[in-house]
């Protein structure tokens, strides 16, 4: 899994059946020290609770689809959890605090 920050939402009413009710969020990947790194990706949110600005854990590939219910859906990135804290020396989240 990797760390990311939710930077926006994506709404698509016309989409694959299994994905109804699954929020789609834009996530900015972070590097190991908490800085933005790489291009944002659209993630399905398996927690259905992540909000803008929140720090999340996300996974790619088949595991991304396996987080969802039903899992046999065309998804290649999913949010696995909402991070409370990253306890790593020097880790700094963009808005300064640790979460």
């Amino acid at each position: 899994m990797l760390l990311g920050r939710v930077i926006g939402t994506v709404v698509a009413t016309e989409k694959y059946d299994g994905l109804t009710g699954v929020p789609m969020l834009f996530v900015q990947p972070l590097d190991r020290m908490g800085a933005d790194a790489g291009k944002p990706v659209v993630c399905a949110d398996s927690t259905k609770m992540a909000g803008r600005g929140e720090l999340v854990l996300y996974e790619g590939g088949r595991e991304a689809a396996m987080m969802l219910e039903p899992w046999f859906v065309p998804v290649d990135h999913s949010i696995m959890g909402i991070v409370d804290e990253v306890s790593r020396d020097g880790w700094r989240h963009e808005n300064g605090d640790r979460s």
Partner: peptide
Amino acid sequence: TGVVVATIKH
């Protein structure tokens, strides 16, 4: 190098 804590998760 660190521990990640998340209460809301899969």
